[in-house]
Amino acid sequence: MILFVTAQQPFLDSPVDERFGRSPWLVKIETETYHWDALPNPGASQSGGAGVAAAQFVIDQKASAAISGDFGPHAASALRTAGVEMRLLNGEVATVQQAVQSFLQGKLLAFG
């Protein structure tokens, strides 16, 4: 499955970013192959509608799940409609890699 984690820097060991629409980077991970890629978040530079821009991007990348600190109402509505699972970071998760591990171990709470 394809996972997206919001990140402050374009690396697997980057600190996670708490924001979905405004995080500078979206790290894409394919859980089967562990192939990953850091993509600039198109929402980060928008004056408005950042959440929808980020959600559209994640949906277009065929994501199954998105992990962030929170999801705004517009982004959440788009992701929910597209069937993208939303999971929340917790205090034990510091890096993107840890977020992926916690997700795979089922330790991240569902949003909403």
Binding site: G43, Q46, G48, G49, A50, G51, V52, A53, A55, Q56, I59, H74, S77, A78, T81, A82
Partner: peptide
């Protein structure tokens, strides 16, 4: 303004 999103075959309006 990102008031529209495309999800599958449908268009969402914000």
């Amino acid at each position: 303004f990102h008031a529209l999103a495309k999800v599958g075959r449908s268009i969402l309006v914000f």
